[in-house]
Design a protein around this nucleic acid. Structure first.
Lengths: 218, 218
DNA sequence: GTCGAATTTTCTGTATACAAAACCCTTGTA
DNA sequence: TACAAGGGTTTTGTATACAGAAAATTCGAC
C-alpha cells in the first residue's frame, strides 16, 4: 500500500467518523507527522479529499468541510434524482434473478438487525451489495461515478443519525421493495420505491439531528 | 498563478481540444519539461485530471481517457437527469427577471451566429451565462458541482461535432425556450424543454460522429 | 490605549535527490 | 519456436531542502 493511499484512507475515515470536526485545519507538517508519512504523499491525499468535497482549500491549508442542515437537504435532493434514475435503469437493464435473490436476503435482514454487533455489520454489507448490483445493472459509468461521490457524504451523515433497530428494520423492508420492483422490471415502481425510501431516510436523519445536534466549531 | 494550476490548465486544454489523443501516456518527466514546471506540481495536475475523469491511472503513468460512442450515450443519459432536474428547480426558485433577460438575448443570438469568429465567441459566452444563472438559481451546491464535472466532458465532445450555423441557430432557440419556461416558473415545461434540447444535441453529435469519426489509437 | 506598519515566524509551493517498483529486453531452455 | 526467468532500464513514489507568501506579533506613533 502506498503512503499516499494510507494517508488518504486515514484522513477520510477520521473525517467521516467525525473524529476530525468540521472547520479543523489540516496543517501539512502536523498531519504528516501524525500519520507517519512525508508531506508529498500527504498533499496528494489532501488533494483527493478536496476533490471529493470532504475538505476545501482555505486561505492557509485545507479545512474539513461542514455539513449543515441545508446541505443535507441539497444532498438528498441530488440523491433522489440520481438514485431514482438508477433504480429505473436497473429495472430496465438488470438481471432479474440477481435482484430477486437480494430481495430474499433483505426480507431475512430483521434477524441480522436484532442480533448483536457483527450481525449488524452483515446487514450493512448486504445493503452495500444492493448498491453494487444497481451500479452494475445500469451500465452507465458516469452515473455510477456520480453516485459513488455522493455516498462518501452520506456515510458521514449516517453517523449523525441514531441507527436504531426500528428504523433499520423499516429500511430493510424499503430496500426489499426496491429490489422487488427492479426484479419485476418495473422502472416507474423502482423509482417510486427509491424516492419513498430516501424521503423516509431523510426524515429520520433530520429528526435525529434536531434531537441530538452535533456540536461544531468554526 | 501557481505552477500546478498552469500545468493543470495546459493539460486540460490539450485533452479537451484533442491535441492529446485518447490513450496517450503522460510521462511525468516528459510533460514537466514540456510545460516548464517540475514534477511535483505536475503530479498534482495529473491528480486533478484523473479525479475529473479526463485521465486515468494505468499501470505505468496516467493515460488520456477515451470517449467512445457508448460513453456519449451514458454522458447524455446522466446529463438529461441532472440538467432536467436543474431546470425544474430553477423554474421553482429562480428570479424570473434574470431568465427573461437571458431569453431576450438568446432570441437575438442568430445575429451572432451568422457573424464572424469573435461574434461566435459571444454566443458561447451567452450560453455559458445561462448555465451559470441556472447553477445560481437552483441553490444546490452538490447538484451544481455534479453538472460542472459533466461539462468538462461535454466540451470535449462538442469538439467532435461540427458546429454549423444551422445547428447553432436551432440550439439558440431551444435555449430560449428553456429560459422562457424558467422565467414563467413552470418546472415541468422547463424540464421538458431541456430534455428536448439535449436529445437534439445528442442526435447532432452522433450524426456528425458517424460521418467524420475521430481517429483514435489504443 | 488603540491603530497601523514593519518584522518575524510559520506555513504552503516548488524543486530535486533518492528509493522502489514496474516494464522490457535479453538469454537460456524445453 | 515458444516460453520463462533474470537483469537492466525506465518510470513512478517518497523524502527533504529551499523559496515565497501569508498570518501573527511586536514595536512605534498618534
Amino acid at each position: 500500500m502506498r503512503a499516499s493511499d494510507k494517508a488518504y484512507a486515514a484522513l477520510r475515515d477520521d473525517i467521516v467518523e467525525w473524529r476530525l470536526a468540521p472547520g479543523t485545519v489540516l496543517a501539512e507538517v502536523e498531519q504528516s507527522e501524525r500519520l507517519g508519512v512525508s508531506r508529498t504523499p500527504l498533499r496528494e491525499a489532501l488533494g483527493r479529499l478536496t476533490a471529493e468535497g470532504l475538505t476545501m482549500a482555505g486561505g492557509r491549508g485545507v479545512v474539513v468541510t461542514d455539513i449543515s442542515l441545508e446541505d443535507i437537504d441539497e444532498l438528498f435532493e441530488l440523491r433522489e434524482t440520481l438514485e431514482g434514475k438508477a433504480a429505473a435503469l436497473a429495472a430496465r437493464r438488470g438481471d432479474a434473478a440477481i435482484f430477486e435473490r437480494l430481495r430474499q436476503e433483505l426480507l431475512r435482514a430483521p434477524e441480522l438487525i436484532s442480533g448483536d454487533e457483527p450481525a449488524l455489520h452483515d446487514y450493512y454489507e448486504l445493503v452495500g451489495r444492493l448498491d453494487t448490483a444497481i451500479d452494475a445493472a445500469i451500465s452507465n459509468s458516469y452515473l455510477a461515478q456520480a453516485m459513488r461521490s455522493l455516498r462518501v457524504h452520506l456515510v458521514r451523515i449516517r453517523r449523525l443519525a441514531a441507527d436504531d433497530a426500528r428504523r433499520l428494520t423499516a429500511a430493510a423492508a424499503e430496500h426489499a421493495a426496491i429490489a422487488e420492483a427492479i426484479a419485476a422490471g418495473n422502472p416507474k415502481l423502482a423509482e417510486a420505491a427509491t424516492i419513498v425510501h430516501l424521503h423516509r431516510s431523510l426524515s429520520h436523519v433530520k429528526a435525529t439531528h434536531a434531537t441530538h445536534p452535533k456540536e461544531h466549531h468554526g
